[in-house]
């Protein structure tokens, strides 16, 4: 049985994950990184140890401009994630990054009414500290100068 804590606390990334830890080190400094392949010059996401396009192992973290546009979304009225029950309805957005074609990232929509959601809405990353301050998550808000 899960403890009461596990039922009410939002899940957090595992910062000890050897393959993903560098991502959180960057978000701690308000920087966004994805993987870039030195062989075919394509960005990819989520971060793999080999390039999903050409198979090269010459992939490395690379900083990208934390801006993009809304590609798709869902508005969640019935959450099945611990700690999110009180937040419904909330939007999970899929963001197409402007500076890394083909990369689409998941996050929450913040500082925007749900009615304002539309495809193509320009957004920028917001680096949001988790409740326990152990890590900064990447959320998205409408770009002010759009």
């Amino acid at each position: 049985m899960a403890s009461d804590n596990a039922k009410t606390q939002k899940p957090l990334p595992d910062r000890a994950d050897l393959d993903n830890a560098a991502f959180w080190a960057a978000t701690a400094e308000d920087r966004l990184q994805v993987k870039l392949c030195a062989a075919c010059s394509r960005h990819h996401w989520p971060p793999r140890l080999g390039c999903p396009y050409c198979g090269s192992d010459r992939v490395a973290w690379s900083a990208v401009d934390p801006a993009g546009e809304v590609f798709s979304w869902t508005v969640i009225y019935r959450s099945q994630t611990p700690g999110f029950e009180a937040e419904v309805p909330y939007a999970v957005v899929l963001i197409a990054l402007k500076s890394a074609p083909g990369v689409r990232m998941v996050g929450n929509l913040v500082n925007c009414a749900l009615e304002g959601l539309r495809a193509g809405l320009p957004v920028e990353a917001v680096f949001t500290p988790a409740a326990d301050n152990s890590v900064k998550l990447v959320n998205w808000q409408p770009t002010e100068r759009s």
Partner: peptide, 14 residues
């Protein structure tokens, strides 16, 4: 690990 680190923290898990 992708689900755990890049989706579930956003209340996106099923």
């Amino acid at each position: 690990s992708f689900r755990r680190d890049f989706e579930s923290p956003y209340g996106f898990s099923v």
